[in-house]
């Protein structure tokens, strides 16, 4: 940053203040004119009126938020802003502490403990990295094919009325091809994601605490021949940062511990593969951490190779609490 920072911040605050004022003037003029002198009003109530009202309101909100954000940035320190964000501008009296204190900046345990397991205490929720892409491909295929179907109806309607729309037909040929390929890609991804069969992981206790050993149960459903199946405990750092106008996320594995490996075996419908194992969290392990732009995740990763299927990887996040001397950290009730 070059120049005197105060001038820049003052300029930004002035810019947003002018936004706010323009919004207020426009909105007041629109609404006031409408109610005080409806006969001379240029913009009658209708689409244009509501559009102008919305734009003026947007100017007011954007101007007010931007102005106060800049002012607070100049007038208060980073720590003071953080406290205002947490407790508000007016300090409130101290409330009594809740019975159960959760360690700060550690993700909530509720999403991990709301599903009981069949043999062990909890069934871990899975993270399917391919699901988002599958949904996107599915939505695209659906929307594209629906659009092509509508154009087809127009083309057929024109043909039946004796007016052949050659330009539309020429456009429909690549459209059909794209729709077909999108559908094919979706069903191929769908079979790959769903066809192998679901994987469930159950765990003896949550949250995990460094230095303790836990039982783990893996159940792999489906009808396939497994060539190799491995379970690993992984600790991963995640950082999000701005690069120009992009927001990028970088991940790095900082701890990897093999829990179990299974060789060739056959799974059938109604006879899932069940693997029991144990693992320990290292005594000097960092706890799970989640802030706005940075995180430390612990997860159990199941990787498999099966005959006639592409290899797959499924991830099951877990929460590691910090090890507290003299006093165990209370898990969430």
């Amino acid at each position: 940053m070059s120049g005197w920072w105060f001038v820049g911040s003052f300029g930004e605050a002035l810019f947003f203040a002018s936004f706010f004022l323009v919004g207020v003037v426009c909105l007041t003029t629109l609404v006031g004119w409408q109610f005080l002198s409806p006969t001379t009003q240029v913009v009658k109530i209708g689409y244009g009126f509501w559009l102008l009202t919305t734009v003026s309101a947007a100017f007011i909100v954007m101007g007010a938020v931007g102005f106060w954000y800049r002012v607070l940035k100049v007038a208060t320190s980073d720590e003071h802003r953080e406290i205002i964000a947490k407790h508000g501008l007016v300090s409130r009296p101290n409330r009594p502490h809740p019975k159960v204190l959760l360690p700060p900046m550690v993700p909530l345990l509720t999403p991990f403990t709301d599903s009981p397991g069949a043999k062990l205490a909890y069934r871990l929720p899975g993270e399917w990295p391919g699901t988002g892409a599958l949904i996107c491909i599915g939505l695209f295929a659906m929307a594209w094919n629906a659009m092509i179907a509508v154009f087809c109806v127009f083309a057929v309607g024109g043909f039946l009325q004796g007016k052949v729309q050659y330009k539309l037909i020429v456009l429909l040929v690549p459209g059909f091809y794209i729709g077909l390929r999108a559908g094919q890609l979706f069903f191929r991804s769908y079979v790959r994601e769903i066809g192998i069969g679901s994987t469930t992981v159950e765990i003896e206790d949550l949250p995990l605490v460094p230095g303790r050993t836990y039982k783990l149960l893996l159940v792999q459903y489906g009808r396939l021949v497994i060539k190799k199946l491995s379970i690993r405990l992984v600790c991963e750092e995640e950082s999000t940062y701005h690069f120009g106008t992009d927001v990028r996320t970088e991940r790095a594995v900082v701890w990897l511990q093999p829990i179990m490996e299974q060789g060739r075996c056959r799974i059938d419908w109604g006879r899932p593969l069940e693997l029991e194992s144990q693992f320990s969290i290292p005594l000097e392990a960092m706890h799970s951490f989640q802030s706005l732009h940075n995180a430390i995740h612990w997860k159990i990763i199941v990787e498999g190779e099966a005959n006639r299927w592409p290899s797959y990887s499924r991830s099951f996040p877990v929460i590691v609490y910090p090890l507290v001397r003299n006093k165990p950290v209370s898990p969430q009730s």
Binding site: P104, V106, S239, M286
Partner: peptide
């Protein structure tokens, strides 16, 4: 002092 976050020096992140 609180339970967390503990001081940490990692690959991408330092607390």
């Amino acid at each position: 002092l609180p339970d967390s976050p503990l001081s940490y020096e990692g690959k991408l992140l330092k607390i």
